[in-house]
Design a binder for these strands. Structure first.
Length: 228
DNA sequence: GACCAGGCACATC
DNA sequence: GATGTGCATGGT
């Protein structure tokens, strides 16, 4: 473990938190709703997901039992605004099948299981990849897992804390090897990265208003940039 | 009208 | 193992 990386990751977290404050993720009423949202938000703007969730709520479909009983084709029509509605309907049904098979549709029972086992199980469900699995673990089940997304890769490679070619697991390891496993902090950290990514770091490498501006000029980053 | 958004599975080379 | 493609809506 590198002390400099640890310092940088902690400093960036602090800077983002000071700038944006607590993000209060995940925006959902129940843990089950978090899981539904995690699948619906794949490659999709959150506003569209809210519309789909609104439809599900209006039709009283936001329970494991109701989603178990509804056919995928019918479910797809309710979640249209979230995009990819046919594949996402199947993915929700795939999760529900697993959820009943392993935990009888009981979220508390699921939450009582070990993180590593849960992650393995979630990844075996067709339609749940690393980011969705980790979002479920962290935001629905309160497991200390760091969620990586496209923003994380873009922002932290620009700040030379990861390599641009690093895969999901490599990036996740970087964070988890250098930060204490803290559910509340991991929760905020990922949400803050998304917040930053939405507002800054879109196209230009560095913009003047970015809260991380002078962090990227740290001695550590300078030394990395010099080498490359 | 192009481009993007809190991915993933599958085909092809 | 790397790279390409389909899936689809709604906002900017």
């Amino acid at each position: 473990m590198s002390q400099r990386v640890k310092k940088s990751l902690e400093k960036i977290y602090q800077r983002l938190f000071d700038q944006f404050g607590p993000q209060r993720w995940w925006p959902a009423k129940t843990r089950f709703e978090v899981i539904v949202g995690a699948i619906l938000t794949q490659n999709t703007n959150w506003g569209n997901v809210e519309k789909a969730i609104g439809n599900l709520r209006a039709h009283r479909l936001l329970t494991p039992r109701r989603l178990k009983d509804i056919p995928a084709e019918k479910l797809a029509q309710h979640i249209r605004p979230a995009g990819y509605f046919n594949v996402k309907a199947k993915r929700l049904k795939n999760f529900i099948d697993y959820f009943y098979k392993e935990y009888a549709g009981d979220i508390s029972r699921m939450a009582g299981q070990k993180t590593e086992l849960l992650r393995e199980q979630l990844l075996s469900v067709s339609g749940i990849g690393p980011e969705t699995a980790d979002s479920i673990l962290l935001y629905a089940l309160d497991k200390p897992i760091f969620v990586v997304d496209a923003y994380t890769k873009r922002i932290f490679s620009r700040h030379a804390l990861i390599r641009s070619g690093d895969d999901y697991h490599a990036v996740q390891k970087k964070f988890m090897n250098h930060l204490k496993p803290d559910v509340k902090m991991f929760n905020e950290y990922h949400a803050l990265v998304v917040r930053l990514g939405k507002n800054f770091c879109r196209t230009t490498p560095r913009c003047a208003a970015c809260p991380l501006n002078n962090i990227s000029r740290s001695a550590y980053v300078r030394s990395i940039l010099k080498k490359s």
